[in-house]
């Protein structure tokens, strides 16, 4: 059967079998801004993990004589805080807690929200109504207030902050997941897959998840910066992490009183929060464009 006649003599294969994720990786690497942001985040995470081995000063050990030393002081490159503790050490150690309660709630909310949203979007009907109306109830409160309210009710502490922030981020992620999924659900390739006799779970696994996860993931990345700021805010208000733990929000709070004495020093934790959330935002933007298969 000479069907070859109907196909053009196109140039031979340009198609090197390439997976989706390696394609995303290749596009990411070509985007300098994203690479820089990713490196900053990576450096912060590595610093936080390996803090004890970096030869830093003890972040808990203060000194009554060396309080509020300015930046560039001998032995304390970034100065010292109101109790004479080394700022560099506290900022790097502070990354541990700050990044943990900044990222963990989003990771947890990502899994819970995606599951709920995909379920609501794919199944539709009464399931959708129950899940989405429940989510709407949470939407009635501004996220900051909701976090404060839940944390306030549960009491201060790392675990309680984690729980309250996770609860805050489940509704927006569920809603995004539901919107994306019901969009995908109505596409013909889902119908085509159902027409082969595949079960709902198989269709979700093969055809839905791959197509909805990247927008949800990108959205979640953009939430991490909000989460970090919220977590810092909770600590700042005294219903998050408790002193003397180094945490950027908390540090910002305690150094607040030193703003007239040494403004540069008291701004440092804020700068860390700002840089990290900016990098996370730009990273999520870069991811969004890298995940677009079409161009």
């Amino acid at each position: 059967m000479a069907l070859s006649e109907t196909l053009p003599a196109e140039p031979e294969p340009i198609a090197i079998p390439q997976g989706y994720w390696s394609g995303v990786g290749a596009r990411l690497v070509r985007d300098p801004l994203t690479v820089i942001c990713a490196s900053v985040i990576l450096a912060l995470i590595l610093g936080a993990i390996f803090a004890p081995w970096l030869g830093l000063a003890d972040p808990y050990k203060g000194s009554m004589i060396a309080r509020l030393k300015p930046l560039g002081t001998e032995g304390h490159i970034l100065g010292t805080d109101e109790q004479g503790r080394d700022m560099l050490a506290r900022l790097i150690y502070g990354g541990r807690l700050t990044l943990f309660i900044g990222l963990m709630p989003v990771v947890l909310a990502f899994f819970i929200g995606s599951t709920l949203g995909i379920l609501a979007g794919y199944v539709g009907g009464i399931t959708n109504t129950i899940i989405m109306r429940t989510v709407d109830v949470f939407f009635a409160f501004p996220s900051v207030l909701l976090a404060i309210a839940i944390s306030g009710a549960l009491g201060a502490g790392i675990v309680n902050s984690l729980v309250s922030l996770t609860i805050v981020f489940i509704p927006p992620l569920t809603r995004v997941a539901e919107a994306v999924t019901s969009g995908v659900r109505s596409l013909d390739y889902i119908d085509a897959a159902r027409a082969t006799g595949a079960s709902a779970l198989t269709v979700i696994r093969v055809h839905v998840i791959g197509n909805v996860l990247s927008p949800i993931f990108v959205y979640a990345t953009s939430l991490t910066s909000v989460c970090m700021i919220l977590a810092a805010g909770l600590s700042f208000l005294g219903i998050g992490v408790r002193p003397p733990e180094p945490e950027w929000g908390l540090m910002l709070n305690t150094l607040r009183s030193a703003i007239y004495v040494n403004p540069w020093l008291s701004a440092l934790p804020g700068v860390m929060i700002f840089v990290t959330s900016l990098c996370l935002n730009l990273l999520s933007d870069g991811l969004r464009s890298a995940m677009n298969v079409r161009d």
Partner: peptide
């Protein structure tokens, strides 16, 4: 275009049904 999953290769799309069966 809409009937093909944009994230699956052509081979995976064509083989999906028979895998399911």
């Amino acid at each position: 275009y809409a009937t093909l999953n944009p994230r699956l290769t052509i081979l995976d799309s064509v083989a999906f049904g028979t895998k399911v069966q």
